Computed example of a mutant assay.
Amino acid sequence: MVWQKGYKLQGGRYVIEKVLGEGGFGITYQAQHTLLKQWVVIKTPNEILKNDSEYPNYVKRFIQEGRKLAQLSQQPHPNIVRITELFEDCKTYCLVMDFVPGESLFNLVQKQGALPELEAVEYIKQIGEALIFVHHQGLVHRDAHPGNIMVQKNGKAVLIDFGIAGEIMPQDGYFTSHHPANIAFAPYEQMGGNRQVTIDVYTLAASLYYAVTGKRPESSLDRKLYNKPLISPNKYVVGISDSLNRAILKGMNLEAEYRPQSMREWLKLLPDFSNQVYQVSQKTQHQTIRTDKTFPVIVGTNNSQQQNKKINNIPWFWLVSRSALKNQSM
């Protein structure tokens, strides 16, 4: 059952305002802390799964990861949403975190179009530093796509979601890379349960690709299964620096072993704009020059060694989801 506006938790301590996102495994709400008069976000497992035999295991993981995130919040990072409470109410576990005002990077690009290189790199560097902090705690985010990067009016970028509530639909910026709309930002090995830091490198590089081109990159699954090319960002947008173009392609290498092996290593590839000043999302202050034609640049798929690799580690549910999407488009 989805909680409606006005539903009270913890004896009225929290009051539900609205649903931010709902999916097969989790629900995200905006709520008000009635004593503090502050907005918060509450994430819960989806109760429709209670009859599923795996539901107890999912709830156990939800609690474990919630506790890990709460430990991160004991030494809060300025670019990571803060977890404030984990409680059980009416046999449903609830994870409470700060409500971060702003607009997701995904929605910002949808509205503004491709962002200036300087602005996009600044947002991504902030999130990269946040992910380094996460990695130092022995965690991997696995969900640092544009929908989970909130951009505030002062230029601050905040990572808002660790994906622990499962499949959140693309609504108000809260959704995860498992949703078909976000396959473009996930490396294919992630769907097999891989939790290496190179997953976050790929996802953040793909987010930067989207920010500077205004286009979703070719999905890693299509690149792996059908040898589809990843088009170089500078073929969409003339004028971006060579160093930025190389950094994006390097971070999005199809095979994890050929990507930078740490977030710090990848961030060092990005151009240094530390002495320059940008203004947040001012569409009228820049002009994107696009070419009439695009030329495929294939990264990590067309050397002979990688072509000979067997495609035997693609999870079945990715293949099903891609087939379903293609059928819907026909």
Rank of each mutant, 00 (worst) to 15 (best):
V2A: 10
W3A: 10
K5V: 10
K5M: 07
Y7N: 11
Y7Q: 13
G11H: 04
I16F: 05
V19W: 11
E22D: 13
E22S: 15
G24M: 12
F25A: 07
T28I: 14
T28H: 00
T28G: 10
A31Y: 04
Q32S: 01
L35F: 09
L36V: 04
I42C: 01
I42E: 01
T44D: 00
E47W: 06
L49P: 02
L49K: 13
L49R: 09
N51Q: 13
E54M: 07
P56T: 06
N57C: 06
Y58K: 12
V59R: 08
R67I: 02
R67E: 07
K68W: 02
A70T: 14
Q71W: 06
H77P: 00
H77N: 03
N79M: 02
I80D: 02
R82D: 06
T84V: 14
L86R: 08
C90W: 00
T92G: 04
M97C: 02
D98I: 00
V100Y: 00
P101M: 08
G102I: 04
L105H: 03
F106Q: 13
L108G: 07
V109I: 12
Q112V: 12
P116H: 09
E119P: 02
E119I: 07
A120T: 08
I124P: 01
I124M: 10
Q126L: 06
I127V: 15
H135G: 13
D143S: 13
P146H: 10
G147Y: 01
M150E: 03
M150A: 02
M150R: 11
Q152E: 13
N154V: 11
K156N: 03
A157F: 07
D161C: 05
F162P: 01
E167L: 09
I168A: 13
I168S: 05
P170T: 08
G173N: 03
A181I: 10
G192L: 07
G193M: 11
Q196E: 15
V201E: 01
V201L: 08
Y210A: 08
P217K: 08
S219M: 12
S220A: 15
S220T: 15
L225S: 09
Y226R: 08
N227L: 11
P229R: 08
L230P: 02
L230F: 03
I231T: 13
S232V: 00
N234S: 14
K235E: 14
G239F: 05
N245G: 05
N245W: 08
R246W: 01
I248V: 07
I248R: 04
G251E: 03
G251Q: 04
G251W: 00
L254T: 15
L254P: 01
A256P: 03
Y258F: 09
P260A: 07
M263C: 06
K268N: 12
L269E: 14
N275Y: 08
S281G: 01
Q282T: 05
T284C: 06
Q287D: 11
T288K: 11
T288Y: 07
I289P: 01
R290P: 08
K293D: 07
T294M: 03
T294N: 03
V297E: 12
N302S: 12
N303V: 05
N303C: 10
Q305W: 00
N308Q: 15
I314T: 15
P315G: 07
W318D: 05
L319H: 09
R322C: 09
S323R: 09
K326R: 15
K326E: 15
